[in-house]
Design a protein around this nucleic acid. Structure first.
Lengths: 217, 217
DNA sequence: AATTACCAAAATATATGATATTTTTAAATA
DNA sequence: TATTTAAAAATATCATATATTTTGGTAATT
């Protein structure tokens, strides 16, 4: 219902973006208009619109007269993204904590609860669906920054986070109990409004993520 | 020659973006496809592509089934943008200084020289062209961050800076000798690789800009 | 064998016209 | 005044057509 209400363009945009994030469209793959037209059942003009948007988001690269292709990935790019994520997410977290209020604290608790249940499930059963884990992880981190009271900052965070997400789904794996503990600390320090400690855990959390990644690249 | 080589879409993209930044297309103005088609002499499909890109850049807002309109401006938005600019530009500056080298120092000196000449001219003659000033100012600040060695960071900075630029051209005016001094200090501390002092000046520089702006909003 | 030149096929860039929907506007009604 | 309704305007999408550019392969040249 919610989904089918959207326009063709919007739906296809989501689909292609998802396919890039989940790796169904591999890095550097040439995105030929005719091919896409057949695969996604939309017109060329709509597709060009979509690809233009995606190139703004950084998931697609566009070259004049040559067309579009899926953005490349690299270890150094991941490092850059991770550093930016630390910068942006920390900054937003700081303001979220300053503006802390019961409503927000409640939503953070809720988001953590769901994430925690899922991570524990993953710990026991490795075959669990990975995309769900990422959904809860995203939700938790996005809740962390949501209270910062700056629309621009939230948007920027989403931009970076999505790029990071792509790497998570391409090369990062669930780190197990380490990640669980970090999330718990992140929650606790946030509820205590202890920015310094929360920030340290966050930075560690993201750094640990990419250390883990180095193996699989 | 260089310009006319580009595609119609690219040229029109630049034109519309410029018209928004310079205020020829006023905030909240509805961007009707047919109207734009007549004014910019391009097809609807090309225009939709362009507007899609611009909405990714944040200069245009898109609403499903309702179309496109020029992004609004507000004092609080300017404040958010300024804060983000401080965050991003400081961070990038830090790394630029760490990676400092003669080449970069040279280009920074050059950029400052041109900016300085122009600002002094402005000080004497208020009627001078304002868009030129902004060009040199942009160039100087972009040179500051260029050496940070992170493509993502540079792109992010450009994104924010352009949004800031729009406000500069819409509501900010030349502050006179204050700005000149700040730029000079920014240059000197950067050449000394004194991040702490350079950062402080930068923050002050941007803050002073928006204090000045409050009057005209 | 490597490089260059050239041609055909593929792909992009752009424009236009057609159709279905949706939104907006303005008029009509209660 | 508020609500409803009908007409007009605008968006969303697609298909098609054309010019230009890029690509890939073959032949010619060094």
């Amino acid at each position: 219902m919610i989904d089918s209400y959207k326009t063709v363009g919007e739906n296809t945009y989501e689909m292609i973006k998802k396919d890039i994030i989940f790796g169904n469209l591999k890095p550097l793959k040439k995105l030929k208009l005719n091919e896409l037209k057949n695969n996604y059942k939309t017109s060329i003009s709509t597709l060009r619109e979509i690809l233009s948007r995606l190139s703004g988001d950084g998931f697609v690269v566009y070259e004049e007269q040559k067309g579009f292709y899926v953005s490349p990935v690299s270890k150094s790019d991941l490092k850059e993204i991770a550093n930016l994520r630390i910068l942006i997410e920390s900054h937003a977290l700081k303001y979220s904590l300053e503006n802390s209020n019961p409503d927000w604290e409640g939503s953070l608790l809720a988001a953590h609860h769901k994430l925690n249940l899922y991570e524990n499930k993953l710990l026991k059963n490795k075959t669990e669906e990975r995309s769900n884990w990422k959904r809860y992880d995203s939700e938790f981190h996005q809740t962390l920054v949501r209270n910062c009271n700056s629309k621009n900052l939230i948007e920027l965070h989403k931009l970076i986070f999505d790029k990071y997400l792509r790497y998570q789904l391409l090369v990062l794996t669930f780190r197990g109990s380490g990640s669980i503990e970090e999330h718990k600390k992140l929650l606790d320090y946030s509820l205590e409004r202890n920015f310094k400690k929360a920030q340290m855990v966050l930075e560690e959390h993201i750094q640990n993520g990419i250390i883990h990644a180095n193996k699989s690249f």
